[in-house]
């Protein structure tokens, strides 16, 4: 099912002193798929996200997104190009309301400057109303509309994860990168999350998913890549990945260590 690739990572490397957090990692994510990125703790998954979203400058390799090279180390440009993400340790704007958090996500798709804000010209007023409308829609979409006016930091853990997804979706991404969205969720919550991710894909957004919950990854993803000590050791459909001896070795080795 190789349709157009949305993201191509070519030989990405990232080193922290002696630690090879990423080494020669290449992977291809097709448009419209859910792509899983798994691996033991410290394998380099989050580091890959940080390189992808421009927070880290890679020490080697390049990223091709929607046919064009991604500029390294320019997070706001990655967002403008259509890459949105959530964080492993939730990073919300804690003292802003849930609504405002999502409204901030619209920043990159709106234009009003100081003059527009102060003069309230017709264009700015219309834009502001559209931001508000879209944010409300997204809060409904992730099913936390009733918490719109609450401070983000007062939401429950599961709701915070959902809010982060809503904020990321507010940037109109082509690729949504989720870093362990099910971490700390119970079975029921994970089930709802799964439905949400499937819905997002159905709405045309490609999803890149880091997750430790193997059942979730295998049930949800079209393709899975496995990282171990910064290297890609396997990339295939879930059924094949599950049986790959290197993968089993990496996970067992990780558990025994």
């Amino acid at each position: 099912m190789s349709i157009r690739p949305l993201l191509e990572a070519r030989a990405i490397a990232k080193y922290f002193g002696g630690v090879k957090a990423l080494h020669d990692v290449s992977l291809t994510i097709a448009e419209g798929e859910i792509y899983g990125l798994i691996g033991p703790n410290g394998a380099g998954k989050t580091t890959f996200f940080n390189v992808l979203t421009g927070l880290y400058r890679p020490d080697g390799g390049e990223l091709i997104f929607a046919g064009d090279k991604l500029q390294a180390s320019a997070p706001h440009k990655a967002a403008r190009r259509g890459i949105a993400r959530t964080f492993q340790n939730i990073r919300l704007f804690g003292n802003m309301s849930a609504m405002e958090n999502v409204m901030v996500g619209r920043h990159v798709r709106t234009r009003a400057g100081v003059l527009g804000a102060v003069l309230h010209n017709r264009k700015t007023v219309a834009e502001e109303a559209a931001i508000r409308r879209r944010a409300e829609e997204l809060l409904h979409y992730v099913d936390i509309a009733d918490r719109a006016d609450d401070l983000a930091k007062h939401l429950s853990y599961g709701d915070q994860r959902r809010l982060e997804i809503a904020r990321a979706l507010a940037t109109d991404p082509k690729l949504l990168a989720l870093d362990e969205p099910a971490a700390g969720m119970n079975g029921a919550e994970t089930g709802e999350l799964r439905l949400l991710i499937e819905g997002i894909r159905k709405d045309g957004v490609t999803v890149l998913l880091i997750e430790h919950d193997v059942k979730l990854v295998m049930g949800l993803c079209d393709h899975v890549a496995v990282l171990d000590y910064g290297q890609k050791i396997c990339e295939d459909v879930p059924a094949v990945v599950q049986k790959d001896p290197r993968v089993i070795e990496a996970y067992l080795g990780g558990e025994l260590a």
Binding site: A79, F87, R91, F93
Partner: peptide
């Protein structure tokens, strides 16, 4: 305010 609250998240929001 977003920058005040979390600069990295603000960057990721574009």
């Amino acid at each position: 305010v977003a920058i005040r609250e979390d600069e990295i998240a603000a960057k990721a929001c574009g």
